[in-house]
Design a protein around this nucleic acid. Structure first.
Lengths: 149, 149
DNA sequence: TACAAATAATTAGTGTGACAAATATATGAA
DNA sequence: TTCATATATTTGTCACACTAATTATTTGTA
C-alpha cells in the first residue's frame, strides 16, 4: 500500500459521503419535506432523546456549537423546535419539538427511512459489518476516543 | 437489517468523512500550509494533469463548477494558479500552476501524504479493498454511472 | 464572600456544497 | 448566413463546517 493510495481513499470517502447527502437532499426536495438533511437529523434526535440542551444535542449529532445554533435557529423559525429556558441554569436551554415538529417527524420518518435504503442496495449483511468496523476504526484513529455501538 | 440501520450507516459515513477532513485541515493549519484541503486537491490535480480547463478540472476533483470557480479564485489570489485564455475558445481558460504553485506542491506533497496515512492505521490490505468496493457500490447506487478504477 | 476558571450559547468571518440563473461564446442545422 | 441550442464560466443565495472571540452565567477555590 503506497501513501498515494491513502490519499485516494480519503478522496473516495469524501466523494461518497457527499453523494449520499446530495441524493437524500434531492429526495427531500422532491418530497417537499421543508427541512434539510441536517435539520432532519436534529429533529429526529430530539424526538428520540429530547428534551436536550444544545450541548447535549451537538454531541449526539456530531455538530459543533455554532452549526447547531444556526440549525436550531432555522428549525425554530419554521416552528418545529422551541428553546425553553433551563429551570436551574440560565445559560442553557432545553430544546424540544413543538406539536408541529412532532407531527412533522411522524410524517417524514417512514419516507426518509425509505430514501436512506437506496444507498445500500447490492450490499449484504457482511458488507455492512465490515463497513461499520472500518469507518469506526478510521474515526478512532483520528479521534482517540472509544465509540459506543 | 432494519431500515433504522441504514440511517445509522448514513450518519456514520457522514461523520467519518467529516472527521477525516477535519483532521487533515487541522494538520494543514498546524503546518501553516497556507491552503485548505480542497485547495490542495485542486493544486495536486493540476500538477499531475495540468494544464486543464475548469470543466475538466471540476470533473477530476468531483466539484461543481461554481465551487471550482471560487477555489480557483482563491488560489489565483494566493498566486498559486493562473487562468490563461484558451487560444481557440474564448469562453474557456487553461489553468496552470505558477512557479510559486509548483514549488508549493513540491514542498507540501510529502507532508500531506504523511498526514493522510494516519486515518488508515489498524487496517490491512483486505480492508482497503473492501472499503473501496463498498464506497464505489454506494456511489453507483445513487449515481447510476460506472466508475473507473 | 470574592474572584478566577469553566461552561453554554452566540456572533463573526472564511471556505465549501448545492442549485438556479445569467453571461459570453461556440456550434450545428435550416 | 442566421438563429436556436449547447457549452464554459460566473454570480447569487442558502445551508453547513470550522475557528476564534464574545457574552452571560455558574462553579470551584482561596
Amino acid at each position: 500500500m503506497t501513501q498515494e493510495q491513502f490519499a485516494k481513499y480519503s478522496f473516495l470517502l469524501d466523494r461518497t459521503a457527499r453523494k449520499v447527502k446530495q441524493y437524500a437532499q434531492q429526495q427531500f426536495k422532491l418530497g417537499e419535506f421543508d427541512v434539510t438533511v441536517d435539520q432532519w437529523l436534529v429533529m429526529k434526535n430530539l424526538s428520540e432523546n429530547g428534551p436536550l440542551s444544545q450541548t447535549e444535542l451537538a454531541g449526539l449529532v456530531f455538530k459543533d456549537h455554532p452549526t447547531l445554533t444556526r440549525i436550531v435557529d432555522l428549525l425554530s423559525k419554521k416552528g418545529y423546535v422551541e428553546r425553553v429556558p433551563h429551570p436551574l441554569d440560565r445559560r442553557s436551554f432545553q430544546l424540544h419539538l413543538t406539536e408541529e415538529g412532532l407531527s412533522k417527524v411522524s410524517a417524514l420518518r417512514p419516507k426518509i427511512l425509505e430514501i436512506r435504503e437506496k444507498a445500500w442496495e447490492n450490499l449484504n449483511e457482511k458488507d455492512f459489518e465490515e463497513f461499520k468496523r472500518i469507518l469506526n476504526t478510521i474515526y478512532q484513529n483520528l479521534d482517540g476516543q472509544v465509540l459506543e455501538e
